[in-house]
Amino acid sequence: MNLGRRERVRAATIMEITETARRLLVQEGSEAVTLRAIAREMGMTAPALYRYFPSHGQLLRHVVGDLFNDLTDALHSGLHAAPEHDMAAKFRAACREFRTWAHDHRREYALLFGTPLPGFGQEEQEDFASECGRRFGLTFLELFQELWAKLPFPVPADAEIDDDVREQLAAYRDRLGLDLPLGCILVFLQCWVRLHGAVSLEVFGHLDFALTDPEPFFELMLREVGERLGLDMTNPA
């Protein structure tokens, strides 16, 4: 679709605002990402920014969406580089890309997965950020579904799952519109918790008390999770 001059200028300004906010985040930390600081960097007035983002919270949500897209694109690049029919290679690629992006973008990762900024996340809304967040989540979920379809692995039966957990899993499955056993949903969440937890502990420095090089520890976790999913993890490449 061809945009008119006014729309092109507006789109370019929104992109510049987002890039400026991200640069401030990386260089100075989350506290520096204010409308006044962004306006100063761009040679604008803070009130002028309200023509593009009605609130500081909405600006941050746009930055979050941009970061989720950046991370998701990195995951897709890793997946596309792996052999199409080698599920173990695709699993390793996605998990390693997630860890690599987190280490290369620590402050961005903290904004996405750490403590939310003051006032951020208080409004539940369907917007750019939530759409991009779903795109990120679907990357791992679709990989998991592909694995389940091609190489089904053992999962607990519904009756083996505690009632309070089973009800939550069923509600989560319904929200996603999935046709998967509850035991499969449970294993998916357990695997995500291990991956996310391992990467977050590394990025936030909470393994420094024991490890000077956490990468081999991460690879050990990756092998254990892969084997839990029935993958052949004997080839570490």
Rank of each mutant, 00 (worst) to 15 (best):
R166H: 10
L195D: 09
F153P: 05
F188C: 06
A157T: 11
G133R: 14
A129L: 10
V193Y: 14
P154R: 02
I185V: 08
F204R: 02
L180F: 05
E142T: 14
A129C: 02
W148L: 14
G205N: 11
C184S: 08
L195C: 06
V193R: 05
R194V: 01
F188E: 04
D162M: 03
L182I: 01
S200D: 08
G133Y: 15
E131N: 10
L207S: 07
D208E: 15
L147P: 06
V165W: 02
R175T: 04
F209P: 09
L138W: 15
G177S: 08
E124P: 06
G205W: 01
R175K: 04
F209A: 15
E142S: 14
A159Q: 12
P181F: 04
W148R: 15
V187E: 01
G133P: 09
F153N: 08
I161E: 01
E126M: 12
A157W: 07
L180M: 12
L178K: 04
E146P: 07
K150I: 12
D163Q: 07
W192D: 03
R194K: 13
A159V: 09
Q125V: 12
I161T: 01
L143S: 10
L195S: 07
G133T: 12
E160K: 03
A159I: 02
C191V: 08
A129P: 03
F153T: 05
Q125H: 13
R134N: 08
R134K: 13
D208Y: 09
L180D: 07
E124N: 12
F140A: 01
S130G: 00
A198E: 10
A171S: 14
A149G: 13
L169P: 00
V203I: 12
L207D: 09
D162A: 02
W192H: 07
D163W: 02
R173V: 00
L143D: 10
L176Q: 10
R166I: 06
L143Q: 08
L189H: 11
Q125S: 13
E142W: 06
E126R: 13
E124Y: 13
F128R: 11
T139Y: 00
L207A: 12
